[in-house]
Design a protein around this nucleic acid. Sequence first.
DNA 1: AATTGTTTAACCTTGG
DNA 2: CCAAGGTTAAACAATT
Length: 301
Amino acid sequence: MPRPLKVTYGDQKPPYSYISLTAMAIMHSPHKMLPLSEIYRFIMDKFPYYRNNMQKWQNSLRHNLSFNDCFIKVPRNISKAGKGSYWTLHPKALGMFENGSLLRRRKRFRVKQLEKDLINSDLAAISAYSAAAAQINSTDPHAEWNLTNDNDYRTSTLKQKQYYVEPATVPLGVTDLVDSIPVRPKRAFTIESLIAPETSSGMARSAVHDARSIAQAAHRKQVFLNTSSRCVEAIPDVGSTTANLAQSNFNQLMTAHHQTHLPLITHYLYNPQHTLNTMYIYQHKQLHDLRNHFNGSLSIF
DNA sequence: AATTGTTTAACCTTGG
DNA sequence: CCAAGGTTAAACAATT
């Protein structure tokens, strides 16, 4: 769990860009995604400077959210409460400040239009799932999954939520899939940790982790093959590329994944390093509901 | 009506 | 210096 920022700047303008501030807010949140109002709140809580001239800097911040590819807008149909979407970081944008400066990045983070389109189609699909699930069942049997009122970075911890429903209530195989999602090594989004270079032992470990990930991905693939007929049909399209994905051939991944029409799930199947776990969980709940409702047939795909 | 999001455009700042 | 990154302003659409 990210440790709280202890440095205060009083009335001084903190030496962070809006992008940094926003990323900090997101990374400190329990689900690594926040609605706009919570981003505001984080910044104002941590940096008194931003308790003034709110119209001005909030306008700037919104500009940054829209303008920069590193921020992804995640639809919020999971519950009707609240307005606006959630904002999260593009998984590949985490190295944005690797030069150590939180004021100015070495290079703007950009994604190609193709990838943007693919992400957007994912998100649209999530919306569709959410809408369908909401229609199916307005009284949510798994309300504890809702993100509503659970954005508070001050009180929440990651362990507080049982993200995974009890095994008995989950279709066989899917639990395995979810449980095997690798937990990202924790790295607090603080000045110190961002400036600090990766240790050599950390590098070595990540190589090991990489190798293990490939095996895990293969296992997950098998599990998933066993759980969804649609997947059986879809996966052959991408089977030949899976071995290479640890080399992070992301375009290949995205293309393959797009063909499967299984938004985000394939991110995890084939890219164990993927960091949008909150999005996955979000999606998974919808899948779960739909799976139950359609009694396994999942014609919605 | 207020909030949220998108876009354009000018200006300022910084690193190379 | 200058190109790229960052800030600010502003108009406007969309959503609730």
